[in-house]
Design a binder for these strands. Structure first.
Lengths: 251, 251
DNA sequence: CAGTGGTCTAGACCACTCC
DNA sequence: GAGTGGTCTAGACCACTGT
């Protein structure tokens, strides 16, 4: 009744080249990504999977081990294997969102959305999101505060089919990556980041309540799905006195 | 004659709690990190390891698999397992050095060292490198150029015992992370990064040949060893028109 | 206690690499 | 062909989790 109930070991006789454990892994992986096995769900026990797929236990375990290495499941001795919740999987990661970073430092994070509109994707955004030039995207602009003081200006672009109201309405108070994971159930894999510095200029100076020649940290974030899909394109302009970005990059 | 020739399976009778494969993995791991098995060296075959440790092949393979997952060895079908070269291991990574990033964009990178001295570690540096306050560190200051134009100012702190002349003499033209890996043989694991923005100010303005109110990207890099050792503390101040930082952060 | 995953053995056959 | 790793089986015993 769980993962692979309808079909059997599909390729029992004629298939070569694809190892059994990889087939099993692929089945379970698809079941998880397409949410036939929802987050938190217990997988069938190794004994059950042996029977269901008609393979030995070692073969089942090899599939489960690789899924565990990819962060899709977690395995507890004496209890079983469970589909990880997207948020847990990426909490292991080392890229915190803006609000989260503020709160870790004991500061009060808040925000205000001051514009939501839909328009054609600018070329750089279309390229990063792998959309045809001019595809309509939703653009949400917010100002984030630290202890009530303006700290950063955000501009997020995403395909409207993605999360419609959810993202737009909550982007002021929540980190985009959290919303993508926890509310929309995406499994984040890797995020491209870029960093530079700019003068605040007139418009951003007014929004952040600083002189126009104040240096701002500019960062761009493009988080990607486990399937390689680019989910979002976000520009950040932050005040260095209020916020400095930190992350850990592995190997 | 290779990894574990002198000792046998040390804990044959009384030891519990430490699985066999973990012991084997630990032995090989130590042999690699302490360079008894140098980079590029072929490991004993799985059959030889079976005999040497007196275990089954599956147990040997479990140890080798985990070493492979950690990037310490790579395994080639029909040939054997080999100790990875540090540079290869981290080329898998997604954090390129400054010069490397410039060259990828088709620009000519060059540099000039204008000060090498030894002095007590500033508190923030001592903290990051886990040194007692005031421990002497070597401080190397360089200016890096892109196509002959000043692009960034670097300030690197490291324990003098680390690489003495090597680092100091070549830090102008080579990325610190490359030197640490390829010349000094460290195995990089994770790098803490921080980003902010500052005004150039008088001193850096003169060095980079820009007005004092030019915004600069400030970044800090603290690369760590596989053993958790902090190797270096580097400040970077770069001109946004010449250089913007990019990386990919996984999960 | 029964159910679960964690570890381990002693085989086997195959595909690949190099001589 | 001999040597190597890649896959797989059919068992086994243990430690941990729940009842």
């Amino acid at each position: 009744m769980t993962s692979s109930s309808p079909p059997l070991t599909a390729t029992a006789d004629a298939t070569d080249a694809v190892p059994l454990f990889a087939q099993i892994k692929g089945r379970l992986r698809d079941d998880i990504l397409e949410k036939r096995l929802p987050a938190g769900q217990k997988l069938p026990s190794e004994a059950q999977l042996q029977l269901a797929f008609g393979v030995s236990r070692i073969t089942v375990r090899q599939a489960l081990n690789e899924l565990q290495a990819e962060g899709l499941i977690e395995t507890l001795n004496g209890k079983g294997s469970f589909v990880t919740r997207p948020a847990q999987a990426s909490r292991l990661g080392m890229l915190a969102g803006f609000n989260e970073m503020l709160r870790v430092h004991g500061r009060v994070a808040s925000g205000r959305t001051f514009s939501v509109r839909t328009g054609p994707a600018p070329p750089r955004v279309a390229r990063a999101l792998k959309l045809a030039p001019g595809t309509p995207v939703t653009i949400v602009r917010t100002v984030r505060m630290a202890d009530g003081v303006p700290a950063a200006f955000f501009q997020a672009y995403y395909e409207p089919t993605l999360g419609r109201e959810i993202l737009a309405s909550r982007l002021a108070d929540e980190d985009a990556m959290n919303l993508l994971e926890e509310e929309l159930g995406f499994r984040l894999d890797r995020t491209q980041i870029a960093a530079s510095a700019v003068k605040a200029g007139r418009m951003r100076g007014i929004l952040l309540n600083v002189p126009a020649d104040t240096p701002l940290l500019y960062m761009r974030f493009v988080p990607h799905d486990l399937t390689g899909l680019a989910l979002l394109y976000a520009d950040m302009y932050s005040l260095p006195e209020q916020f400095s970005y930190r992350a850990v990059v592995r190997r």
